[in-house]
């Protein structure tokens, strides 16, 4: 398309706008990264603290060791992976039922699923903590993982994708006597790979960044995730640790950032796939 391909000054203008906007969006990240790469008086020596001078990894390594962040990163990683795998599985199954199967009460059930999406965590958290308590799941991985395993968002996303698959595909398969599970595994799921990829990424991001529920269900160091561990770095009344927060922030956001750089295109493509013929 010609309109999409500006030349000459318009091209320069476009890059300028893109560059300026990107700089504004990225500025907070840059400032914090820089703060984290300085230590001691340098970090507080304003306003020159915005220039990349006297860079050191001290703050980050101190945050890492003082905050016991290694263990927390592992916990976050484990929990995020388990939840991601689980959500993809439950979403595939329920999406299949809603997309391909006809049964009485389907509409009502569908509305039920969607309605649960609107229940704020603020409403459920007190009782859920008590449920986890009575199950003996406080301070445990099950307590972090199990309640997050069902996702209506995931079901909707996958169902949307399934609906774009030609109906004949499913009809032909069931005429050939192919079972539901086999069709799901061998046909529907592989065809929905981009969507599943996007779902996986979003679920991973969401779980990695979860704050409220982990803070309720976990108290001990052994099971703490990185998000709630970060707060320990922000000790009230202690100015000397102010800078450590930035080191912790960089560590917490880094894995996600790397993932984003690697998979950003897949994320968009996965979301587009289901939407095209919604």
């Amino acid at each position: 398309m010609r309109a999409d391909r500006p030349r000459g000054w318009r091209l320069v203008g476009r890059y300028t706008v893109l560059g300026v906007v990107a700089a504004v969006v990225l500025f907070p990240i840059y400032a914090v990264l820089l703060q984290a790469l300085k230590s001691g008086p340098d970090a507080l020596d304003h306003p020159s603290s915005l220039l990349p001078t006297h860079l050191t990894l001290d703050t980050i390594t101190t945050a890492w060791t003082d905050g016991n962040l290694g263990r927390m990163m592992l916990n976050s990683m484990l929990v995020s992976l388990l939840v991601t795998a689980g959500v993809m599985l439950t979403s595939l199954l329920s999406a299949y039922a809603f997309a391909f199967l006809r049964f009485p009460g389907r509409g009502v059930l569908f509305v039920f699923f969607v309605a649960t999406m609107l229940v704020p965590a603020e409403v459920t958290v007190v009782i859920n903590r008590r449920t986890a308590d009575s199950l003996g799941w406080l301070n445990s991985y099950q307590g972090l993982v199990v309640p997050a395993l069902a996702s209506t968002f995931g079901m909707l996303l996958v169902r949307q994708m399934f609906l774009t698959l030609p109906k004949e595909l499913h009809e032909a398969a069931s005429l050939d006597g192919v079972g539901h599970l086999r069709f799901l595994w061998e046909v529907a799921a592989p065809l929905s790979r981009p969507t599943l990829g996007a779902l996986g990424l979003f679920t991973f991001l969401g779980t990695w960044n979860a704050y409220l529920w982990p803070s309720q269900v976990i108290t001990d160091e052994a099971h703490k995730t990185i998000q709630i561990g970060l707060e320990d770095l922000k000790t009230p009344g202690d100015i000397s640790r102010f800078n450590l927060i930035t080191g912790g922030l960089v560590i917490a956001a880094l894995p996600i950032f790397v993932m984003l750089v690697l998979f950003q295109r897949q994320l968009v493509r996965g979301l587009t796939a289901g939407a095209v013929k919604g």
Binding site: L18, V21, A22, V25, L26, P28, I29, A31, V32, Q35, L205, W208, N209, A210, Y211, Q227, L230, E231, K234, F242, I245, T246, L249, A252, A253, I256, F257, M259, L260, V261, Q264, R265, L267, V268
Partner: peptide, 23 residues
């Protein structure tokens, strides 16, 4: 640029709030 614009998805609410708290 797309990666730059989507970068804040990498920050949780907690991380983003602490970023602004520091700034």
């Amino acid at each position: 640029f797309r990666t730059a614009f989507s970068s804040t998805v990498a920050t949780s609410v907690a991380v983003a709030s602490l970023v602004w708290f520091v700034l």
